[in-house]
Design a protein around this nucleic acid. Structure first.
Length: 862
RNA sequence: GCCCACGUGGCGGAAUUGGUAGACGCAAGGGACUUAAAAUCCCUCGAUCUUUUUGAUCGUGCCGGUUCGAGUCCGGCCGUGGGCACCA
């Protein structure tokens, strides 16, 4: 028992239930984490991807927000002024589904979820600036988003065109890809059709080049994310060529990245929604039928690509423009995408696997035109595998003898000279369709006027708010059915007009929220000066599942708003860290229903339902999800062990970028560690001195050893936190605490113990902040730990004067020796070869070579 | 199908980025303390063989390669996960 400075009696155990809420109140009362207005020095913006308010916080959130919090607290200790806000990505389908299932309004459901999740989150004690909190479904947010939409419309970055959607013919509603299961609507079970609607698009393709080139400057993004984005944008260079029909003068524009293989062409294929296919379908029922079959797959690329490649011969043929006497049949094919290139391709089966499969299926020619190095031109056969490697072009008239790249350039040159084609750079990236036929989203601020056409809403009419009096008992968009909401007047002519009833894709909501956090403003979408000061986000943290879409859209939005003059930055996120997911095994009862882990009793590999003893099937560990009920509620853990134990645990085991396999047993270990810190700190309090300001002139061996131990811990923990290797920071803290010896004596012993205790509190501060503040107060500090600076390493204390060197013989470890650090290579070699185990192993054989790596290893080659 | 990752003891993982594989933790086993339990502390802990120790061989998903030396680099497989544009 130790008396604390405040006269309280120190408890035997760390009492989370008492200590944690107390510190949370103090932080709150002191507005500890509210970022200052104005332009503070050394700004640091930490942001975790904001959550969708699905109902309850799950361990994935705990992991994400704890990691962001460690960075926020660490950067503050390092002297930064930190902005660490929180909000809610609150529009989306689940709220409408809940409305449909429970007959409650999406807004009510969403705000109730936000309240529940906010209080759960606060129990973790995060250093968040709650004064900037907002939800994207607040009219004060989405109204500003409508203003941004109008800005972008004015800047020519928004337009309308037709696009295909999944149409459920029974429910008469548009379905998300997620709602299409095996080609059927999830509720009606009807076969889904593709249907064309006029929709709003953002011109992201106008930024394709700069979004691609900009990746090179994002040095602190994971390489894999940059690569995925580069592939997604997909720049390719090739040729757009006109293939003239043999029956008339019309041409079909074909895009290819392989103009070098034009002599190997054996067919032309067009998309089922190509204008030519559509016009053929009008007169030919066989074509119409085939096109209709192509349309039942839904709109996802995965579904299209996985389906069997099929084609229909239209009976038409075209001339190969490079080889005028070569006639090619024209097919309609289900694998050609209207959205990419020109919606038409030529097939060269010898050098493209998909084309080869197609040619084999429909009995088309296979003519090799690229010769691999060393192959015999008279003996080239293509069987089941197309040749896609480098080589020399042959069988190809003017291109003969050229290397592939050279032949591509030459073919484009000929096309441009003769006028039947032109070199073209194409992107895989498509414009971003943002229209959604749903209620729970941001209304698109335009008006349809019978006389003026599509007219932007007047800025003074914003926000255009969602009506509250809607019902979800019938499928489809309630805004369409609302008796009065649509009716308005045209901002241009003042006549009767109708509002747009589509709402914006929820990805729009999350494409600029970081700007509003930084420059929260009553009137503007964001205060540009404030946003420019905080932006770009210094550290962005979130799930790897957002590697492409969310991150690309946010990058696009930032550039688009820069063009509109609203921000000076072109990239939103300076440093990105992507997290793995939290997984748990699943439990399923005989009737197929899923069972929550808390209802299960497990012994070995067997699991039973606790209440009834019914046997359960144990499934593999996968991403925690509501649908499979394999979720752990953090509230139970916080109630039982406390927030710091929960935080410590999610930081401890897996490296953050890897998936985290949940296990309850690990929690006990974290609990023991927190208790251990409490006990060791208590021992320190008994043995330490009050005054730490002056380092004593002399230190006993024990004091010096502890002093060194402390500085090694500072070094290890700092490096781990800088690299976001929280599991390594935890390991370093374990070693530190294990090695704090309070039983030392002699010169400076009390000082060294005091230094260790202070350092202990500071180093665990970012990870276990409640415990750390409590220890800091116990140590008699007047000020708060959250305002205390990070400890500094004395580099001299990290030096060792001896090193252990491994001695290998032909790469196999035979012995180790301790030598003075930086000992001369020749001396190291001499000593190594003199070791009895080494002489015995060499056993008189000739030593051919000795490799000496300073301070590390000696390898003897015999 | 395409793009991107990942794969190390019973388990989570570490390995100074090509240099002693298994740090740290969990689980397990043994012991101390205790009337007992909890808590705490100490010891053992990749596999096989051998041995009192010493030691030997194998070992980082599989097959091959580069190197004095490979968990790390290269090529080819297998498996798992993420994304595929209307899930967020």
């Amino acid at each position: 028992m130790t008396n604390t400075p405040e006269g309280r009696v120190r408890e035997e155990r760390y009492n989370a239930a008492e200590i944690e809420p107390r510190w949370q109140r103090i932080w709150d009362d002191e507005a500890a984490f509210v970022a200052p207005k104005g332009n503070p020095d050394a700004p640091y913006y930490v942001l975790e991807m904001f959550p969708y308010p699905s109902g309850r916080i799950h361990m994935g959130h705990v992991r994400n927000y704890t990691q962001g919090d460690v960075i926020a607290r660490y950067k503050r200790a390092k002297g930064h002024t930190v902005l660490h806000p929180m909000g809610w990505d609150a529009f989306g389908m689940p709220a409408e589904n809940a409305a449909f299932e429970r007959k409650s309004h999406p807004a009510k459901w969403t705000y109730a979820n936000i309240d529940a999740m906010r209080s759960q989150l606060k129990r973790l004690g995060p250093a968040i600036d709650w004064s900037r909190e907002f939800a994207t479904c607040d009219p004060s947010y989405y109204g500003k988003q409508q203003a941004l939409f109008l800005e972008m419309l004015e800047a020519g970055l928004v337009y309308r065109k037709n696009a295909t959607v999944n149409w459920d013919p029974v429910d008469c509603t548009v379905l998300a890809n997620e709602q299409v299961i095996d080609g059927r609507g999830w509720r009606s079970g009807a076969m889904v059709e593709r249907r064309e609607l006029t929709q709003w698009f953002f011109k992201i393709t106008e930024f394709a080049e700069e979004l691609l080139d900009g990746l090179d400057d994002l040095k602190n993004w994971p390489d894999k994310v940059r690569l995925m984005q580069a592939n997604w944008i997909g720049r390719s260079s090739g040729l757009t060529a006109q293939f003239t029909r043999t029956d008339c003068d019309d041409t079909i524009a074909v895009y290819t990245t392989r103009p070098d293989t034009l002599y190997g062409a054996s067919f032309v294929a067009i998309a089922a929604d190509h204008p030519l296919a559509k016009s053929l379908a009008e007169s030919d029922p066989k074509v119409a039928d085939f096109c209709k079959k192509c349309a039942v797959l839904g709109t996802s690329e995965e579904a299209l690509e996985k389906t069997e490649k099929r084609g229909l011969d239209t009976g038409l043929s075209v001339c190969n423009p490079l080889v005028p006497d070569m006639k090619l049949p024209v097919y309609i094919a289900n694998f050609v995408l209207m959205d990419y290139g020109t919606g038409a391709v030529f097939g060269c089966p010898a050098h493209d696997q998909r084309d080869l499969d197609f040619a084999r299926k429909y009995g088309l020619n296979v003519t090799p035109v690229v010769l691999p190095a060393g192959a015999d031109p008279d003996d080239v056969t293509i069987d089941a595998e197309a040749y896609t490697g480098p080589g020399t072009v042959f069988n190809s008239g003017p291109l003969d003898g050229m290397a592939v790249e050279e032949a591509k350039t030459k073919a484009i040159e000929i096309a441009e000279e003769k006028g039947w084609g032109a070199g073209a750079t194409t992107f895989r990236l498509r414009d971003w369709g943002v229209s959604r036929q749903r209620y729970w989203g941001c209304p698109i601020p335009v008006v349809h006027c019978p006389t003026c056409g599509v007219v932007p809403a007047a800025k003074q009419d914003l926000p255009i708010t969602l009506p509250d009096d809607v019902t979800f008992d019938t499928p489809g968009n309630p805004l369409d059915r609302h008796p009065t909401w649509r009716q308005t007047t045209c901002p241009k002519c003042g006549g009767d007009a109708l509002r747009e009833t589509d709402t914006l894709d929820t990805f729009v909501d999350s494409s600029w929220y970081f700007l509003r956090f930084a420059g929260l403003d009553k009137d503007a979408p964001f205060d540009s000066a404030a946003a420019n000061h905080w932006m770009p986000v210094d550290q962005y943290i979130g799930g790897i599942e957002h590697a492409i879409l969310h991150l690309l859209y946010a990058r696009f939005f930032t550039r688009a708003l820069q063009r509109c003059g609203l921000t000076e930055h072109s990239e939103p996120f300076k440093r990105l860290f992507t997290l793995g997911m939290v997984c748990h095994e699943t439990y399923q009862a005989g009737d197929g229903r899923w069972v929550m882990p808390e209802e299960v009793d497990k012994s070995g590999d067997k699991a039973v339902l606790r209440e009834t003893g019914e046997a359960l099937t144990v499934g593999r560990s996968e991403k925690m999800s509501k649908s499979k009920k394999n979720v752990i509620d953090p509230d139970d853990i916080i109630a039982q062990y406390g927030a710091d134990v929960a935080r410590w645990f999610v930081l401890s085991d897996s490296p953050p970028e890897r998936d985290f396999l949940w296990s309850d047993v690990g929690l006990e270990g974290s609990w023991r560690f927190i208790q251990r810190v409490w006990r060791v700190a208590g021992q320190c309090l008994d043995a330490c001195s009050e005054d730490i300001s002056e380092k004593p002139a002399a230190l006993s061996d024990g004091a010096l050893a502890l002093h060194k131990h402390t500085h090694k811990a500072i070094d290890a923990v700092s490096k781990a936190l800088e690299g976001m290797q929280f599991n390594k920071a935890v390991a370093a803290m374990n070693s530190f605490v294990n090695g704090i010896d309070t039983g030392i004596s002699g010169d400076g012993a009390a000082w060294a113990v005091r230094e260790a205790a202070d350092t202990l509190a500071r180093l665990i501060g970012p990870m276990a902040p409640h415990l750390a503040e409590e220890l800091w107060a116990e140590l008699g500090h007047d000020d708060r730990l959250y305002r205390a600076p990070w400890p500094q390493v004395d580099p001299a204390m990290l030096e060792e004067d001896t090193v252990t060197i491994a001695i290998q013989i032909r790469g196999k470890l035979r012995d180790t020796i301790d030598v003075p650090k930086d000992l001369d290579k020749a001396l190291v070699e001499e000593r190594a070869l003199a070791q009895p185990k080494i002489t015995a192993a060499i056993d008189g054989q000739t030593v051919r070579k000795v490799i000496v790596v300073p301070n590390r290893i000696v390898n003897v080659v015999i």
